[in-house]
């Protein structure tokens, strides 16, 4: 379990991380989302004891990282943004070095085999790390975090540099690890967070902008008042009719999807469900509605909205 309390880091006058608090339960996968320079890596570096915090506390399985760093670090497997690889070593020698460094008590041979099999690097075990491709290097980096089987894994952008197939593999692996590890992973790829994580923390300008489950986050901002409709009929007439509905903010038709069928984006005042009204006008004019759906926001939209400084009305759940 990871507990973070009022964590703050100042670099001179600049507040890189400003008073953030959260808890990650055992077996939970937490996604850390934010634009570049938002404070993701700084936070992770503080969690792992690489840098100190200006104020605040980090507890890893109940152990304070600054008070008893060695004990706390024993519980952490860390993959930094740039994997700490010694380029002039072979993969096998390097992982053995990490094994010794972490003073692991596990049976060396079988543990090494397991880790290499998990990360799919068995075939390059005798190659020098400097000769490996970026994807392999990244996986060796992941492997070094897994050596010693620490209960807490902190992964800073683990899929950077991988091809799409490897990305899927690593995500599946992280998901599997999440069953018996506590995982924090950072990313700016939203689909990745959505696919892997139970919970998402969006961090921006050093503060937590949102903290909720991934599904909950997109549900919260799902909007009944914004709909997409495909209606068969004369475009100008339809537009005019829709504008006639009470409470419409805007409507536009940019695309002719099929011949004579345009797609209309309609937004009404918040909290106003206009689907029935649209049906009503269609019946009135004998137009055919071929599609009608509410515009759900993806994590992408939420992310953009939150980080662009636009206020999104989220549930009271964990939003700050």
């Amino acid at each position: 379990m990871i507990e973070v309390r009022n964590l703050t880091k100042h670099y001179g006058d600049k507040k890189a991380v400003n008073d953030i608090s959260f808890t990650v339960e055992d077996g939970e996968i937490l996604g850390f989302l934010g634009p570049n320079g938002a404070g993701k890596s700084t936070t992770m570096n503080m969690l792992t004891g690489y840098i100190s915090s200006t104020s605040g506390k980090v507890l890893i399985n109940g152990v304070d990282v600054l008070e008893d760093p060695i004990k706390a670090k024993t519980n952490i497997g860390y993959l930094p943004e740039i994997p700490p690889l010694y380029l002039d070593m072979t993969v096998k020698a390097y992982l053995n070095f990490v094994f010794d460094l972490k003073k692991s008590k596990l049976p060396r041979r079988s543990h090494m085999k397991d880790v290499m099999a998990l990360c799919k690097i068995k075939d390059v075990e005798n190659r020098l790390i400097k000769n490996l491709s970026k994807g392999y290097k990244q996986r060796v980096g992941l492997a070094q975090a897994l050596v010693g089987n620490p209960p807490v894994l902190i992964l800073d952008e683990p899929t950077v540099g991988l091809d799409p197939k490897q990305m899927v593999e690593i995500r599946t692996l992280i998901k599997r690890l999440g069953k018996n590890h506590t995982v924090i992973l950072s990313s700016h790829i939203l689909s990745e967070i959505q696919a892997v994580c139970d919970r998402v923390i969006i961090i921006d300008h050093g503060v937590i902008a949102a903290d909720d489950t991934a599904t909950h986050l997109s549900e919260q901002v799902t909007t009944d008042h914004r709909v997409i409709a495909r209606i068969e009929g004369e475009k100008a007439e339809i537009l005019q009719a829709i504008r006639g509905i009470e409470g419409i903010r805007y409507v536009r038709a940019d695309m002719e999807r099929e011949k004579g069928i345009w797609e209309y984006e309609i937004e009404a005042e918040p909290g106003r469900d206009i689907r029935r009204d649209i049906n009503a006008i269609a019946r009135e004019h004998a137009w055919n509605i071929l599609l009608l759906k509410t515009m759900e926001m993806t994590l992408e939209d939420i992310f953009l909205k939150i980080t662009m400084g636009e206020q999104v009305e989220l549930g009271k759940g964990g939003t700050k």
Partner: peptide
């Protein structure tokens, strides 16, 4: 330079 010190400094060693 190679950013490997991060590995050392986050390992459970003094």
């Amino acid at each position: 330079k190679q950013k490997t010190e991060q590995g050392l400094l986050t390992a459970p060693v003094s």
